[in-house]
Simulated assay, not measured.
Amino acid sequence: MNIRVTLDGQPVDATLNDHAVARDLVSLLPLSLDLEDFHQTERIAYPPRKLDTSGAPAPAAPKTGDLAYYAPWGNLALFHRDGDSASADLIVLGHVDAGDTERLANAEHITIEAAP
């Protein structure tokens, strides 16, 4: 699924995986969220409600650029470093190709919209 992602006012290429949790995220679009650092590995933000995780895909370790959802806290996570391991609580929703990890690591605001 194609989406439009903007980091700090600059558009980046992004796609969502085709599964139920990612489709639930699409139902919330457009989203405009402030990001904060979490463990110098990811930037996190909280959508207006928790996503429905029924039908979630098998766990996968997040990679740099992955947009993920951490179910226990209900937050989105944009990884600027590879994650340590796969977790059933972390659902990879898609991928953002920002061109360099510094851009991901320093992003303060994300806008996610449906692609035209």
Results as ranks from 00 to 15, higher is better:
18 D>P: 01
26 V>S: 00
18 D>G: 00
84 D>S: 14
28 L>Y: 06
44 I>H: 03
64 T>F: 02
28 L>S: 08
27 S>W: 00
110 I>S: 07
68 A>W: 01
68 A>V: 04
27 S>Q: 09
58 A>F: 04
87 S>K: 09
107 A>F: 13
81 R>S: 12
37 D>G: 11
15 T>F: 05
35 L>Y: 06
40 Q>P: 00
47 P>T: 12
38 F>L: 15
86 A>C: 10
113 E>K: 07
47 P>R: 09
25 L>F: 03
17 N>C: 05
30 P>D: 04
30 P>N: 09
36 E>W: 04
108 E>S: 15
33 L>Y: 06
60 A>P: 02
57 P>S: 07
43 R>W: 07
68 A>H: 05
98 A>Y: 14
33 L>T: 04
52 D>M: 01
108 E>W: 02
52 D>F: 00
91 I>Q: 10
114 A>V: 14
67 L>P: 09
43 R>E: 09
75 N>E: 08
3 I>Y: 01
34 D>E: 11
28 L>T: 02
15 T>K: 06
106 N>T: 15
100 D>G: 12
10 Q>D: 09
111 T>S: 15
13 D>G: 05
91 I>C: 09
91 I>G: 10
86 A>H: 10
88 A>Q: 14
77 A>V: 02
51 L>E: 05
14 A>M: 07
41 T>A: 14
58 A>I: 12
98 A>D: 13
26 V>G: 00
38 F>A: 05
29 L>P: 09
3 I>L: 05
9 G>D: 07
41 T>Y: 00
74 G>H: 08
60 A>M: 12
51 L>M: 12
51 L>P: 03
109 H>G: 11
98 A>T: 14
21 V>I: 03
83 G>N: 10
106 N>I: 00
31 L>K: 03
100 D>T: 13
18 D>S: 09
94 G>D: 08
4 R>Q: 11
76 L>E: 08
16 L>C: 05
104 L>S: 13
79 F>N: 02
58 A>G: 04
84 D>Q: 12
33 L>W: 03
36 E>F: 01
50 K>C: 01
31 L>H: 07
93 L>V: 13
39 H>F: 05
